[in-house]
Amino acid sequence: MSFTIANTIDDVLTALAAGARPIAGGTDLVVGARQGKAPLPADLVALDRVDELRTIGPEPGGGIRIGAGVTHATLVHDATVVGAATSIADASALVGSPATRHVGTLGGNVMNGSPAMDTGAPLMVLDAAAELRSLRGTRRLTMTELWTGPGSTAAEPDELCTALVLPAESDRSGSAYVRLEYRRAMEIAVVGAAAAVTLADDGTIARLAVALAAVAPTIVAVDVSAMIGHRVDDNVLAAVALAASDTATPIDDLRASADYRRHTVGVMARRAVDAAVRRAGGEPIGVPVNRSIGIGVAS
């Protein structure tokens, strides 16, 4: 049994190679152990003092590099994220409580692999890549390649997610994440949807991506290629909702029935596209969308 406090990424990789498991905020690992989901690993390496993991900056060659150790609390307010990857800020703002957001990290959310994770759908629509490092080298996986099932990823045990890398965003782009929630704090997505859009000069859709949370074994992308070239109107939004509902393969559980999830994920997708388009057009819609135009709007 060991607990290693790492100061550098190399410290972490050495510990992982020796069989330790990484712990950042511990909001999944520790809570899960207390609930009896899985015992705490015998050997842990703590990531919270590794400064390199906690930076947000430009990616050489364009784009944004978000360290895996950046907390949700930072993502909600970081000017770069809010400006160019707004849907991630939307999602981080909804995670748990202030306490959870203060310690919970983007990398932890991604690598926990829950299909109900909030930041997953935004990362997918933003074409993010996960940077995985080990003593053996560095590789990048798309989000689709990374998530292989509920709670599982393609990462090897000795690999650490060091960053999420986003490509450069075109002008007239916007993104948004909306989720169905039954209360306004300490909540988990019943269903969620993210959208990222780039508008052409004539106002038609040049690029659109939609992804869904909590309606399939992993975060899933919706095929919305048919919308390209169209101007966003009620018909397009209805088609997005239909495509999202058709893509979903939800289950019945305590939080909702499959039928209700299938319906509401369409509603969320429609709202996410609507908000993303409005943001792309320069309309300032506050973070998170859920508190601005979505579910449970402020009184």
Binding site: Y182, R184, M186
Partner: peptide, 15 residues
């Protein structure tokens, strides 16, 4: 089936 505070949904201050 919902003997925990995640699935037994109390109202929060935010609500």
């Amino acid at each position: 089936r919902n003997a925990g505070l995640l699935e037994y949904k109390l109202q929060t201050c935010a609500d």
